[in-house]
Lab assay of single mutants.
Amino acid sequence: MRSPRTRGRSGRPLSLLLALLCALRAKVCGASGQFELEILSMQNVNGELQNGNCCGGARNPGDRKCTRDECDTYFKVCLKEYQSRVTAGGPCSFGSGSTPVIGGNTFNLKASRGNDRNRIVLPFSFAWPRSYTLLVEAWDSSNDTVQPDSIIEKASHSGMINPSRQWQTLKQNTGVAHFEYQIRVTCDDYYYGFGCNKFCRPRDDFFGHYACDQNGNKTCMEGWMGPECNRAICRQGCSPKHGSCKLPGDCRCQYGWQGLYCDKCIPHPGCVHGICNEPWQCLCETNWGGQLCDKDLNYCGTHQPCLNGGTCSNTGPDKYQCSCPEGYSGPNCEIA
């Protein structure tokens, strides 16, 4: 077999650049994923090309098998939009790539799955459409700058595939050579959905506090709520009108309100015997008056200043008058 000629994957630097851009600016990249293909086995019993010639040398006159050299087999892949009637021409609109030389006439790579040499990765940054057309071609490398490479066999497949970690196996069982391969579509990290176009990256910072479920939905951490999980859940009972919080379990009062639940107004400074319904009010309790509710309107009842059976009459805020019984006098009937 001729010395292998290595063929790198098509578009790999571009895919790395796209992945970097997506990581830095995830909101700009609407989708991100990759179409993967792995060659599993190849069977070319006679070492022939599609045109019937030998990959190298002439045929044995007896059994008609190619004798001089085995094929240097590598694969090309073209991925494009779905076609009900597949045409070989036209651009590979979803991507293209190739393997290096991975074997001779016949080989089996099932035991070495995950080997990069027999895998082609086609990254995409558009919403995966699920339906596709795939062209797979086996080629013989001439290892010659003058002699062109020659095609051994080709296969085409049109179908639908959803993103999954599971592989789907396909076979080419007609023509001079048979080969088996597997395909799958996977979303990149933080991308979800059938189109790999739903973005969700767990975070716990100013912009949100959430994890992501298997469908890419945000699940808020304990103590947080809202579409972006950036609204803290305040202390139970915290007034929704007069209290708020920036951290879970907190209850910060608005100006003019106080209390554990921010449901108590702050009265006017200096208010003595008054209450409030709104901040800075001083609504006097019964029998109290004045701007600060510090004037006693029922001095008689509060202090009972009249002595010796005198009768007390309220005459104004903090004022009274005693009517003394016979034989007593003085402001409080204290003089006998």
Rank of each mutant, 00 (worst) to 15 (best):
C71F: 12
I161N: 01
K171T: 11
G8V: 14
N298I: 00
G243W: 07
P227T: 09
G226A: 14
G289A: 04
T219A: 05
S142T: 11
G309A: 08
W224L: 09
G57R: 06
N162D: 12
C71S: 11
F207L: 06
R252K: 07
N105H: 15
D205A: 11
K154R: 13
G33C: 12
N287H: 06
R235G: 15
H242D: 15
C284G: 01
P123H: 03
R117G: 04
L297P: 02
R5W: 13
V121A: 06
L14P: 15
H242Q: 11
M160K: 03
D116V: 12
G259A: 03
D144E: 04
N230K: 07
T286P: 01
F206S: 06
L122R: 03
G223D: 10
P240A: 10
G289V: 12
L170P: 08
G62E: 11
V28E: 05
C324S: 04
M225R: 07
D213A: 06
R113H: 09
H157L: 14
E81Q: 13
R68L: 09
R184S: 00
G52A: 04
C66R: 12
M160T: 10
H268P: 11
S142C: 11
E180Q: 09
G114C: 12
G316S: 07
N173K: 10
W128G: 04
T67I: 14
S10F: 13
A23G: 03
A88P: 14
G56V: 15
Y74S: 11
E180K: 07
I161S: 08
G8R: 15
G243V: 08
G289S: 03
G330E: 07
C238R: 09
N53T: 03
G274S: 01
R231K: 09
W288R: 04
C238S: 06
H273L: 02
N277I: 01
V77G: 14
A88D: 10
T6A: 15
T99S: 08
H273R: 08
A31S: 13
Q83K: 10
V121G: 09
A111G: 06
L122P: 05
C245G: 10
D318N: 08
F199L: 08
S156Y: 03
N53I: 13
G208E: 05
C238Y: 10
P227L: 03
E36V: 09
W257S: 05
K154N: 13
S239N: 01
P227S: 12
N215I: 08
G175S: 03
Q214E: 10
K65R: 15
Q43K: 01
S142G: 11
N108D: 12
A111D: 08
F94V: 12
G90W: 04
N162I: 14
E228G: 12
N115H: 13
N314S: 03
G327A: 06
Y82C: 15
A23V: 13
C92G: 07
P267A: 11
I183N: 00
R231S: 06
V86D: 06
F35S: 00
C92R: 10
R203G: 12
C29Y: 03
V45A: 03
K198T: 13
P331T: 07
S98F: 09
G316A: 04
D69H: 11
N298K: 03
M221I: 10
D72N: 10
G11A: 01
I39T: 00
P129A: 06
E180D: 14
D140H: 07
I233F: 01
D116A: 11
P61Q: 12
S10C: 04
D69V: 14
Q166H: 13
R184L: 02
P123L: 07
C54S: 06
Q304P: 03
K110T: 15
P202H: 08
E153V: 11
Y328N: 09
G237S: 06
D318V: 15
S41P: 03
C220Y: 01
K319T: 05
D140G: 13
S96A: 06
P61A: 15
N217D: 13
Q83L: 12
Q258H: 09
C324R: 01
E48A: 01
A177P: 04
F124Y: 02
C229Y: 01
N215S: 08
L134F: 01
C253W: 02
E228A: 11
S329L: 15
Q291H: 05
N230D: 05
T99R: 00
P279S: 10
S98P: 05
E278A: 07
Q281K: 03
L247I: 03
K80E: 12
Q182R: 13
C196G: 01
C55R: 05
S150G: 10
K171Q: 13
Q281P: 02
H268N: 05
S15R: 08
N46Y: 13
N277T: 06
G330A: 06
S313N: 10
N314I: 11
R119L: 09
H209L: 05
S323A: 07
S32P: 02
R184P: 02
V28L: 07
D188G: 06
R59Q: 10
F207I: 05
L79F: 00
R235L: 05
G223R: 15
K264R: 12
A232T: 12
L24R: 01
R119C: 07
R119H: 12
P202A: 09
C262Y: 02
H209N: 06
I152T: 01
D250V: 05
N108T: 15
V86I: 10
P148T: 01
H209P: 09
C200Y: 09
T315K: 08
W257R: 05
I233S: 14
L292H: 02
A138E: 00
Q281R: 10
P267R: 10
C66S: 13
C262S: 02
D204E: 11
D144N: 03
I266S: 12
G208V: 08
G223C: 09
